[in-house]
Amino acid sequence: MKVLIVSDSHGLKEELIELKNRYMTEVDAMIHCGDSELESSSNELSGFLVVKGNCDFDRSFPSDQLVNLNHLPFYITHGHLYNVKMTLLNLRYRAEEVGAKIVCFGHSHIAGAELIDGILFINPGSIRLPRMRKEKTYSILEIDDNKNAIVRFYSIDGLEIPGLKVACKIG
């Protein structure tokens, strides 16, 4: 299974369309972790599982989603409600509470992934305003049938950023 994960696009439209066109036939799901600053009905977000960020004003976005993809529970949230700029502890508690094995979030604009207590946390960074690096980033999660996961990060032009790659086993 492959999943495209994007966050914090802050009004970008062409870039979202470009990512959709680039990966539509390669991925099983597309996730946007909030702060799109677009309407939920926008063409750019069609096909994405989307949540509401602190800069999203369309009330029809859910604040979070728990979805099963290939029999794995994914928890999707923006992160601002869990204080992710300071700690992942609150988000970890929420993930445990809902039984998530994978958590996709944004808000900090800092790309990264880590396994905490058997739960994989993925922040794809921002395709508009990255922090802690110059590249505007998104990620692709690949999981095989044995629950081996690889999270790869890419710059907006589709080039892999090898130093950010994370491999682990989903618990």
Rank of each mutant, 00 (worst) to 15 (best):
Glu15Met: 02
Leu12Lys: 11
Phe105Ala: 03
Gly106Ala: 09
Gln65Trp: 01
Thr77Met: 00
Ser42Arg: 01
Arg59Val: 13
Gly34Arg: 06
Leu66Asn: 10
Glu15Val: 06
Leu19Cys: 06
Val84Ile: 08
Glu142Ser: 13
Ser155Gln: 06
Ile76Asn: 11
Cys168Arg: 05
Asn148Glu: 12
His109Ile: 01
Gly118Thr: 12
Lys147His: 14
Val151Trp: 10
Ala113Cys: 08
Phe61Asp: 05
Leu159Pro: 05
Gly99Pro: 11
Gln65Leu: 13
Cys33Gln: 05
His10Thr: 08
Asn70Leu: 02
Asp58Ala: 03
Val98Asp: 14
Lys147Asn: 15
Ala95Met: 14
His109Tyr: 05
Met30Val: 04
Ile116Asn: 07
Phe48Met: 05
Asp28Trp: 00
Asp145Arg: 04
Tyr82Lys: 02
Ala95Ile: 14
Gly34Phe: 10
Gly79Val: 06
Asn70Thr: 01
Ser42Gly: 05
Ala149His: 07
Asn68Tyr: 13
Lys136Arg: 13
Ile31Leu: 02
Ser126Leu: 07
Gly34Tyr: 11
Ile150Asn: 08
Ile122Thr: 13
Gly34Leu: 09
Gly79Cys: 10
Ser36Ala: 15
Met24Asn: 14
Ala149Ser: 12
Ile161Phe: 09
Asn123Trp: 05
Leu45Trp: 10
Asp117His: 12
Asp56Ile: 11
Val67Gln: 09
Ser63Thr: 07
Leu19Arg: 00
Ile122Ser: 08
Asp56Pro: 00
Ser108Lys: 00
Val51Ala: 06
Ile156Phe: 11
Asp58Tyr: 03
Ile140Asn: 01
His107Pro: 00
Lys165Val: 15
Asn146Arg: 04
Cys104Trp: 04
Leu38Met: 07
Pro162Leu: 11
Asp157Ser: 14
Ala95Tyr: 15
Val51Gln: 07
Pro73Cys: 09
His10Tyr: 12
Val67Asp: 07
Lys169Ile: 08
Asp157Ala: 08
Val151His: 10
Met132Pro: 03
Asp35Ser: 05
Phe57Arg: 03
Glu39Lys: 09
Met1Leu: 07
Leu81Ala: 08
Leu81Pro: 00
Gly11His: 08
Gly171Thr: 08
Tyr138Val: 01
Ile150Tyr: 04
Arg131Tyr: 10
Ser126Gly: 10
Pro130Trp: 11
Asp64Lys: 00
Gly11Cys: 09
Met132Trp: 11
Glu114His: 00
Tyr154Phe: 15
Arg131Gln: 11
His80Asn: 11
Arg92Phe: 15
Asp28Arg: 01
His10Asn: 11
Tyr93Leu: 09
Thr25Met: 09
Ile156Trp: 10
Leu19Trp: 03
Phe153Gln: 01
Val98Cys: 15
His78Val: 08
Gly171Lys: 10
Arg152Phe: 11
Phe74Ala: 07
Phe61Arg: 02
His32Phe: 02
Gly112Ser: 12
Arg92Asn: 13
Gly158Asp: 06
Leu38Thr: 11
Leu164Thr: 02
Gly47Met: 02
Asn54Pro: 06
Gly47Ser: 03
Leu120Ile: 12
Asn83Arg: 00
Phe121Met: 12
Ala100Glu: 12
Phe153Thr: 01
Cys168Ala: 15
Val84Arg: 03
Val6Ser: 01
Val151Pro: 13
Lys85Arg: 15
Tyr93Arg: 05
His109Ser: 03
Asp117Val: 13
Ile156Pro: 03
Ala111Met: 13
Glu26His: 01
Lys165Pro: 04
